[in-house]
């Protein structure tokens, strides 16, 4: 009995030892020489492997950083300035601070603003739907509402609002990796400056249809009237192909355009609620949407 035990233990120990030696030599033989700094940089990375930097993943980004001469063309949107600072310190580079960005959904075609004209009954992806036809509303530029952006977001920063049928960006979670901007077949989502105190002004519409057509399809469409461009003192607004666009680098957040827009297509977010404005002044614009602050992003 006891010999059995001794024999078993001994043979297994010897086997284990032998294999360990073999493993050691194999590991030596197939050792890959790598820049040890890659591991250091990779350890700094957030590890989301989202590809938002343009590289295949965090390790690929780390490798690119160690090989690069400077970090100007490399930026980790997820880690942001803090991470890039650490990477620069580790590698002995200098980095300039970049303004934080956030994904912005540029469509306000809620179920109310943009009535359905037919019912889509196919594969529930935006890609399939937009490849098939112009969409289930009168607007063929707006959000098709199947949530490809939600599916592609690695950070849980996007969700579909069941009431509006539009995606909502969670500013806290959004890392501006840009995955959603690529996933959206309509190109509605844009990365924009987060702005001071997270305040932003943007045109929440991308419809290139002529004013009347766009308005007919959606109450909140940009009709390309150009009023906003005229009122802007900073030359930040351009109107092209019947749609206005605000350059966030030029915009000084005066919000004049927001008040000027006849359809409420220009949104401002995170501004403090307006002090009860003296009623008589903007009389004709009484129906101006007041839900700006809470509609799109929270």
């Amino acid at each position: 009995m006891s010999t059995t035990i001794i024999f078993t233990v001994a043979s297994l120990s010897i086997l284990g030892l032998l294999l360990a030696v073999v493993l050691y030599f194999v590991a030596q033989k197939f050792k890959v020489e790598e820049d040890p700094r890659i591991d250091i940089v990779e350890a700094i990375m957030p590890g989301a492997n989202c590809g938002g930097c343009g590289q295949a993943g965090c390790r690929a980004f780390a490798e690119a950083c160690t090989k690069a001469d400077n970090l100007d063309s490399l930026f980790c949107p997820v880690g942001g300035n803090a991470t890039m600072k650490k990477v620069a310190d580790a590698l002995g580079f200098q980095v300039a601070e970049k303004a934080p960005m956030v994904a912005v959904v540029r469509c306000n075609g809620t179920c109310e603003n943009r009535p359905k004209t037919n019912i889509y009954d196919g594969v529930a992806t935006c890609a399939a739907k937009s490849a098939l036809y112009s969409g289930d509303t009168g607007c063929r530029y707006g959000c098709v509402g199947c949530g490809d952006c939600v599916a592609v977001c690695n950070f849980g920063a996007l969700s579909m609002d069941p009431h509006t049928g539009l995606p909502v960006v969670d500013e806290e979670k959004c890392t501006a990796c840009g995955a959603c901007t690529k996933a959206c077949p309509k190109g509605i989502i844009e990365l924009r400056n987060k702005g001071p105190k997270n305040r932003r002004v943007f045109v929440s519409c991308v419809s290139k249809d002529k004013g009347a057509v766009a308005r007919k399809a959606c109450k909140a469409a940009c009709i390309g009237c150009g009023k906003c461009a005229k009122v802007c003192k900073f030359d930040a607004i351009t109107v092209e192909n019947n749609v206005a666009y605000i350059d966030f680098n030029k915009c000084k957040l005066c919000t004049k355009c927001v008040d000027e827009c006849p359809t409420g297509a220009i949104h401002k977010v995170n501004f403090p609620p307006k002090p009860a404005a003296p009623a008589p002044a903007p009389a004709p614009a009484a129906e101006k949407p007041v839900e700006n602050n809470n509609n799109q992003e929270k």
Binding site: K116, G122, L132
Partner: peptide
């Protein structure tokens, strides 16, 4: 107007 179903074949 009646809303028609639309789907791929």
């Amino acid at each position: 107007m009646k809303k028609l179903l639309v789907s791929p074949s």
